[in-house]
Design a protein around this nucleic acid. Structure first.
Lengths: 159, 159
DNA sequence: TGATTACCCATGAGTGCCCATGGTATCCCA
DNA sequence: TGGGATACCATGGGCACTCATGGGTAATCA
């Protein structure tokens, strides 16, 4: 199925509009009315997803037996802090300036695909994040083919 | 099964198009719509693979219990940093100039088969890398027949 | 009443699609 | 065995379409 891939840097214009990349809109579907955005828990970025995905998170919360503090945190910060933003006719959104300011977005936004969701970053902060992530990968000698091999052997081992 | 073998150096034209070697396209399959490309974690090159291979990596990530930092790294740099590039009618791709620039590709690209995936290099940097890799192999006295023998004894030993 | 939002239209750069060509390797025939 | 024909591959060019960007106006809201 279609997933959010790649990263794009698009401009924010004087009216605060920014184009959601066409490939992300394609993943969202032609009948998508917009997206949902909220502050990321782990990074200095915004998390973005489809409305359906937020509903999935909501259902997941009901099913799991989460600790009350975690439940409360998610209820307040994620659901309380999320905004649903419609597309205009050209596939643009207007980012609430309060959210944009929390992550340092001024005149450009980086959209970063994360398969089921995506993130919105200040492009410079994203570059810094990426650079440090790659340094860590080199230091740990991470290999994608090893990850695939481990996942395969986990299945065969009857794990 | 078919694997990516050999290396080829092809030209990049004024429109940024470059032919994917015919044997690589054959491995990908006649119904392949294109390839996926992302920055290599370990080398100054791009990693290339089929769309199915990226899906395999995606499934592997879901199956393994990776450390959160490693998961985050792969989600952002590999999936966020990958692009799905379609073939044109003649089996060419257009490399995004942002990716091409990170590895110093200007007017030629070296395609290097790595069995299940392949890499894209600046041809000169590939030559330098190969030279230093061969020096390291001689220093470590690497023998291909020893590798085969060790793998065979590992299988028979019921490891 | 002013600011903001929604809706509509326009434009240029880049992309996708299509067609053409030259070179090389392979195959077939004399 | 050599030459010609054919097929395949890499390379080059042109045109239509898409995408991101920009602007204007009317409606809505505070």
């Amino acid at each position: 199925m279609a997933v959010f891939l790649s990263s794009f840097v698009n401009k924010v214009d004087k009216k605060g509009r920014v184009s959601v990349p066409a490939s992300f809109r394609a993943v969202l579907g032609s009948d998508a009315q917009g997206i949902v955005v909220f502050r990321s828990l782990q990074q200095e970025a915004l998390d973005g997803c489809s409305i359906a995905h937020l509903e999935l998170l909501s259902e997941s919360l009901e099913k799991l037996d989460l600790a009350p503090e975690m439940f409360e945190l998610i209820e307040t910060t994620i659901f309380g802090g999320s905004v649903q933003i419609p597309f205009d006719g050209e596939g643009r959104i207007v980012l609430p300036s309060s959210l944009a300011q929390t992550i340092g977005i001024t005149d450009e936004v980086a959209f970063v695909g994360r398969r089921k969701t995506f993130q919105l970053w200040n492009p410079q902060k994203l570059t810094e994040h990426d650079t440090s992530a790659r340094s860590a990968a080199r230091a740990q000698d991470i290999s994608l083919s090893k990850i695939i091999a481990q996942a395969s052997s986990k299945i065969e081992g009857g794990a």
